[in-house]
Design a protein around this nucleic acid. Structure first.
Ligand code: FES
Ligand code: FES
Lengths: 144, 144
DNA sequence: ATATTAAAAGAGTTAAAGGTCTTTTATTAT
DNA sequence: ATAATAAAAGACCTTTAACTCTTTTAATAT
């Protein structure tokens, strides 16, 4: 469904959002540990998101990543599109080039509804929506 | 969502199911053309399905592939599991090793419902369900 | 029997995703 | 100013998916 990079990107953004509440930068090392993910790989992913101005980064001591007020309203769909492109939004699940009513594949009608729910989930969830649950360890960003 | 192999496998099975009604074998060449897919790749995929007894194959003149009466009841879920494994059934969409209620990721509750719909679509659809629509060109297995 | 047909088998290739490493640049604390 | 810190940049490596090619085996029509 999502590439590995995209999954990490979403989880990283949730984590940065949570820490951004405290007004502090969180370093790559801490992010990688918080997600149980390879640090250099996370670094590269965040570099991309930083270029796309979806996260603020700062070099030097006490540097790291954080989200501005407006960046905390980034949706999961924003992240998915930034990392994986927009194929999730409207492509055929059986791989036909065009998904439309003119030449539907056998599962088109059913999949259309599922895809709508996926898009809805992604577009209605913001990265800061679960700050509290994450802080209280009711939700998790890595395996226990 | 599905690997390329899996998408081709599903489409190939729909096509073989449709032709099996006529009681004839359909050759790889014709299948590849019917799906607008690379012939040697389709051959590989069908070889695997054949080994897993999900399709009958015959060598020599008038050979090819067809589905037995019972094989026509194969569901899309059977195909997906055979080709891509069972990760679709119960894995976390953010990549956590375990998806369960004990350590849910932020989208667990919502994704659980979506995954259920996907599984339902796959398990209730049989490869021969759309024979007629395919024959009448109301549904398609390749781009126009 | 022989030639032809068509899938099976399996090695080989290509491209993309996933992941690592080293060097550079910017910041800040001293 | 200098040293220490931490991200940026970009080259590099590894693995897997996607796809191809060649040879072999089996079946059938003549
Ligand atoms: S054509 Fe396949 S999902 Fe729409
Ligand atoms: S834990 Fe992520 S979907 Fe269940």
């Amino acid at each position: 469904m999502f590439s590995q990079s995209c999954k990490y990107a979403i989880r990283a953004m949730f984590l940065i959002a949570q820490r951004s509440n405290e007004g502090k930068f969180i370093g790559i090392k801490e992010i990688a540990e918080g997600l149980d993910a390879p640090q250099p790989f996370i670094a590269k992913i965040l570099q991309d998101l930083s270029k796309k101005t979806m996260v603020i980064s700062a070099k030097g001591p006490n540097g790291g990543f954080m989200l501005s007020e407006s960046q905390r309203h980034t949706t999961l769909l924003d992240i998915v599109v930034a990392v994986d492109g927009n194929k999730i939004i409207n492509s055929c699940c059986l791989g036909l080039r065009d998904c439309n009513e003119k030449s539907p594949c056998p599962v088109h009608d059913e999949y259309k509804l599922i895809r709508k729910k996926i898009n809805s989930m992604l577009s209605t969830t913001q990265v800061s929506d679960y700050n509290d649950e994450l802080s209280m360890s009711k939700l998790f960003l890595k395996d226990k």
